[in-house]
Amino acid sequence: MSEEVNKPAEQAAEATVPLTEGVYGKLLKENGIASTPLPESIGIETLAVQASALPAAMKFLREKAKLNFLVAVSGVDSPDTFDSVYHLWSFSKLDELVVKVRVPKSSLPADKLPEVPSLSNYWQTADWHERETYDLIGIRYIGHRYLRRILNPWDWEGHPLRRDYKQPVDALNDKHPVSMR
């Protein structure tokens, strides 16, 4: 594993550039859902919502704002937070939106997975994507009917895409530096 753990550049950008609220941020605010603007990702509005506000926000965005195509649910192990990232497109218009739920690592007790409400009962495409994110990043989606590992074997331990994940073979390597290489 690499020695250097680079910090994503966006952390620095966040501190310097004052962020303005985008179209959807305003729309959400008008409907009583709080959101924080984040730096745009290549020209696309990005905002963060609280985990508790996610279902309401998504319901609003899907039904009222017509962002009815949930392209992907991704999990990101950022240096300070666990992000659950939702890329929203629309089947009928060109607008895009990135919604992030950021769970600070500092608020998490040891051995506890970050928890985000699940969209799977509301939006079928989230079902497998959330399972995948749970599998690889280890974000627990509350309310998912069948939150089970999907890409890794069912008895796998750990969440491989986390920055602090140690592969079983790495552990063996540390034990027997010569034989396992």
């Binding site: 966006e10 990702s41 290549i42 696309i44 392209v71 991704s74 192990d77 890329h87 990135v98």
Partner: peptide, 29 residues
């Protein structure tokens, strides 16, 4: 450095790639 999502229309549908780069020789995510 930066993050972004881009997609192309593959024979099977929307094939997207979400990248978080931190400017190094490897992607962050």
């Amino acid at each position: 450095a930066g993050e972004g999502f881009a997609a192309v229309e593959s024979p099977r549908g929307v094939l997207g790639c979400y990248i978080i780069s931190n400017g190094s020789d490897k992607a962050y995510r």
